[in-house]
Simulated scan of single mutants.
Amino acid sequence: MVSQAWYSVLVGLVAVERLAELVVAKRNMAWSLARGGRETGFGHYPFMVVLHTGLLAGCLLEVWLADRDFTSALGWPMLVLVVASQALRWWCIRTLGHQWNTRIVVVPGLPRVTGGPYRLFQHPNYVAVVVEGFALPLVHDAWVTAIVFTVLNAGLLTVRIRAEDDALRSVHA
């Protein structure tokens, strides 16, 4: 019971982090639009919001309703991965600056960012999303949530990355 309460605090902290992302994204959207930015690929965005909200809800529901135990051998390494994914996400946000968003928005004339984690991976933020998507549930043995999110997110990222690459090609051709 105590471990479930602490896990709920962890999921709550991730939810607060997500809300902070939305504040940054809204500010960056205004900045981008003021400079002629265009949003593309918005059709999948509502599904993304539902999926990511479902991840957080699924973590809590599965742990509390299925009375999942905390397994140290799995939980602690997964917690390290959750923290690492958050660090990578905020490295991406910091590197992209005003160009980072939860939506796909490109501003014509701006150079493509190739520094920070973008020199290592083409889409490092999605590496963070994938890692967090399986690690956060597995911190407390919510394996059903981990599997369902990972499978649905793989489909979403296929669409999302294609849309993002198309948008970037359109301004960096």
Rank of each mutant, 00 (worst) to 15 (best):
E17I: 01
E21M: 08
L22K: 08
M48H: 11
W31Q: 10
A25G: 10
R35T: 05
T53F: 14
G58Q: 10
G58F: 02
V24D: 05
H44S: 12
L56V: 04
M29W: 10
P46H: 10
M29T: 15
F47P: 05
L60P: 00
A20P: 00
V16R: 09
A25H: 07
S32Y: 04
L60N: 01
V49P: 00
L51R: 15
C59V: 02
M29R: 15
L22F: 03
V49D: 01
T40Y: 08
G36L: 10
L61P: 00
L19D: 04
W31K: 11
A20F: 01
L33R: 15
L33T: 13
S32G: 12
L33W: 12
A30K: 15
L60T: 06
M48P: 00
M48K: 11
P46T: 12
W64I: 00
S32V: 00
H52R: 05
G37N: 07
L51P: 05
F42S: 15
L13T: 06
V23R: 15
V23G: 02
V63G: 04
R18W: 03
Y45T: 01
G37W: 03
R35Y: 06
V14Q: 04
R38T: 13
W64Q: 05
V24K: 09
L19K: 10
L13W: 10
F42G: 15
P46N: 14
W31C: 02
L56M: 13
A25I: 00
A15M: 09
L55Y: 07
A15T: 09
L22Y: 07
V23Q: 14
G36H: 13
G37Y: 02
V23P: 00
H52I: 02
V14L: 03
R35L: 05
V16Y: 07
V49Q: 10
G58E: 06
L13K: 11
R35N: 09
V63D: 06
L60A: 07
R18A: 06
L13Y: 09
T53Y: 03
P46S: 13
V63L: 11
R27N: 05
E17H: 03
C59F: 08
M48I: 04
A57C: 13
L55K: 07
E39A: 08
W64P: 02
H52E: 05
A25T: 11
